[in-house]
Design a protein around this nucleic acid. Structure first.
Lengths: 197, 197
DNA sequence: GGAGTTATGTTGACGGTGTCAAGATTGTTC
DNA sequence: GAACAATCTTGACACCGTCAACATAACTCC
């Protein structure tokens, strides 16, 4: 019995995740069907159901992995910033992740999972955690340097929203082109920096 | 022949748009199928194809209408601002539109049309126009009041990205709750205002 | 007013999707 | 080796968008 023709795949769980990720990169969420995926993995249509409850669960697992990557980037950049409130480098790295992995970013933050679907507890956990870490990390950097009456947490949330908004506008193919995006983000950071004492 | 049983509907084009909009509000883009829509309009599955080239065209028409509404709000608020750079009221109105019409907002800016689909020329036109007007209007308000070396257009783009990002985060059901959203946006506006001379 | 043309509506069909049910095969455990 | 669980299979169902072919109504022109 050859290795390709045996009844049990042997490592279908990981194969599915890996193949799903490349299929996601190639065709986006819309092009990611379980049937295509199964075919690519050389397995019947319903085989994936023995490893993931349904499509939503598979996509959540995919997004959870991507969040772990992003979280790692965030942590590295916050550490690299040391005690300096200059988050320019951080922003650049964030934008790079989003533009280099647009379909993953879309899956991580898109409504496919958060609105239409049902985000798994693990996904929720890693997503909230990465945001919390960012917000707390940044607000620690800004603490005491902002004008009176300015909540550093709010500024952190606003900056996140700005970056995220830029990513979405670009990824969704609407307004800003990529070079503009960096310029806009630099302007936004400069605005925050200018407000520091 | 009763009014309900006649062969020709009489006003199917508008009926479809109207029914599609309520279906959109009720169930989101994912729940909006042409077959449901046709049934609601009391017509066969393929009748809509005589009024819209395909589903994409219908959704574009829907989004175009919504953009016209948003554009109207933007214009009104910019006029109301007069010569003052305080865009707090503007932001509030924008957020209101997005939170009161979340599914429409999603359709307007989401990848359904801009990435997966093919935005019609009319949609592109009204979308770009509303953004251009906002950016130009706001940068006119900020002109000459910003610190040296600050491009008002970039600030306008950044502020749009911030608002849009907040709307997406909220609409997609991710991070910020509605009351936080206003607080964050206020903080962002305050940051811009603080940079003015 | 009748004939021809266009607009509008219909049913039937095709390939695609996610997912459930029932059965086949393999691995694991006593 | 028997019993059981894990894994994989085919078959089926209900959706979906859309095309082709046909039916009916409205509109136009002589």
């Amino acid at each position: 019995m050859t290795q390709n023709a045996r009844y049990h795949h042997g490592d279908l769980h990981d194969t599915l995740l890996q193949e799903a990720n490349t299929l996601l990169s190639e065709q986006g969420v819309e092009g990611l069907s379980l049937r295509k995926l199964a075919e690519r993995a050389g397995v019947s249509r319903t085989a994936p159901y023995h490893h993931f409850r349904d499509k939503n669960a598979l996509l959540c697992a995919l997004a959870t992995r991507a969040f772990a990557q992003l979280d790692e980037i965030i942590q590295r950049q916050l550490e690299a910033a040391g005690n300096s409130p200059d988050i320019q480098a951080f922003v650049i790295e964030y934008l790079r992740f989003a533009t280099e992995n647009p379909e993953q970013y879309e899956l991580m933050f898109g409504r496919t999972l958060w609105k239409s679907g049902e985000p798994t507890p693990e996904l929720k956990e890693v997503a909230y955690r990465s945001f919390r870490r960012y917000a707390e990390g940044l607000s620690a950097l800004l603490q005491g340097r902002l004008p009176e009456g300015t909540d550093p947490l709010r500024v952190a949330q606003a900056s996140w929203a700005t970056i995220h908004g830029l990513c979405r506008l670009t990824i969704d193919g609407i307004y800003v082109n990529q070079e503009d995006m960096e310029a806009v983000s630099q302007q936004a950071v400069a605005l925050i920096m200018a407000a520091l004492s």
